[in-house]
């Protein structure tokens, strides 16, 4: 595509994301944005607001809630919703556990349990396009992900049925019961996300910035006590200056030791870091070499 001289890389990424949001609004009946209050989904909501301004965002948000939350993130989530007059649906993993549709895992981790509530919600609300914040730079299995990723009637990703994507043309046509996952941030890198957050002055939950917290070391990650449990007898609790690079199920989301207390310091840290955010802080992605691909097949992102 020919590029005008004035646009920066961030402008190009923003333009592409807005274009994608509008395609979905034009082509689909019932889109929804997955929104956890984390930085990627907050960025999605910010871009959606820009895509439809001065009108409101023409679709709701959905949070698949593990119940293993950081209070700061849930407060932030609700503030964003209120501030922009958005509509939020919440699917609580706890509800699925309570009525027996899901069973708690032996390790207590609930990230993998999100798949069923997500797919059930997609079916019951008849969502046909589901926006996620996935990026191709996150993990090797994602480098080949489409921007419009087709899921069959069981919510599953079938490699053979993924459509070729050429130019800026996206085929959102699908059969009844199928839906499309849409990734407007596909071509962003982690550093792009942070640079854009700075440029746009986007607010994030406070746990992304350095703060004092009681933590204990498990599997090479700094975990904190919460509704999901706490340190085992052999694990020592330390008071440290940390921040989070991702937010998810608190039982398996690790903090990193960091003094980065504002956006500029975070950018400097990310730019200097030689680890991906998932590799550094998400225990569930370390389960296997193809962890991401396995979960994608079964309907998780």
């Amino acid at each position: 595509m020919s590029a005008p001289t004035q646009q920066t890389t961030l402008d190009r990424l923003e333009s592409e994301a807005i274009h994608i949001f509008r395609e979905v609004a034009g082509e689909f009946d019932r889109p929804v944005i997955l929104f956890s209050g984390g930085k990627d989904s907050t960025l999605l909501v910010h871009l959606a607001i820009k895509a439809f301004w001065p009108a409101p965002v023409p679709f709701p948000l959905l949070h698949v809630d593990t119940g293993h939350n950081f209070d700061e993130v849930i407060e932030f989530r609700d503030e964003v919703v209120a501030q922009h007059g958005l509509r939020l649906e919440v699917a609580k993993v706890q509800d699925w556990i309570d009525d027996g549709r899901l069973q708690e895992r032996p390790d207590g981790t609930r990230n993998p349990l999100q798949t069923v509530p997500l797919l059930d919600s997609i079916t019951s609300h008849k969502y046909d396009a589901v926006f996620g914040g996935g990026r191709r730079d996150e993990e090797r299995a994602r480098a080949k992900e489409r921007i419009f990723s087709l899921r069959n009637a069981f919510g599953q990703w079938e490699p053979r049925r993924q459509r070729p994507e050429l130019w800026n043309l996206y085929n959102g046509r699908h059969r009844a019961g199928e839906h499309v996952r849409v990734f407007p941030l596909s071509n962003w890198t982690e550093l792009d996300v942070w640079n854009y957050i700075e440029r746009e002055g986007i607010e994030l939950p406070s746990i992304y910035y350095s703060h004092q917290r009681d933590v204990y070391l498990r599997d090479g990650m700094w975990l904190t006590e919460g509704p999901w449990g706490g340190p085992r007898p052999e694990e020592t609790v330390l008071h440290k200056t940390i921040r989070y690079r991702t937010v998810g199920d608190g039982s398996c989301t690790g903090a990193v030791e960091s003094e980065a207390s504002d956006i500029r310091e975070v950018i400097a840290e990310v730019a200097a870091s030689r680890l991906t955010e998932r590799g550094a802080t998400r225990a569930d992605d370390r389960l296997s070499e193809a962890a991401m691909e396995d979960r994608k097949r079964e309907g998780y992102f």
Partner: peptide, 15 residues
Amino acid sequence: QYVIRGDRFRGPAGT
């Protein structure tokens, strides 16, 4: 791509 409809605003949108 889409026609944005807001309060007293109606505008075609595209790239």
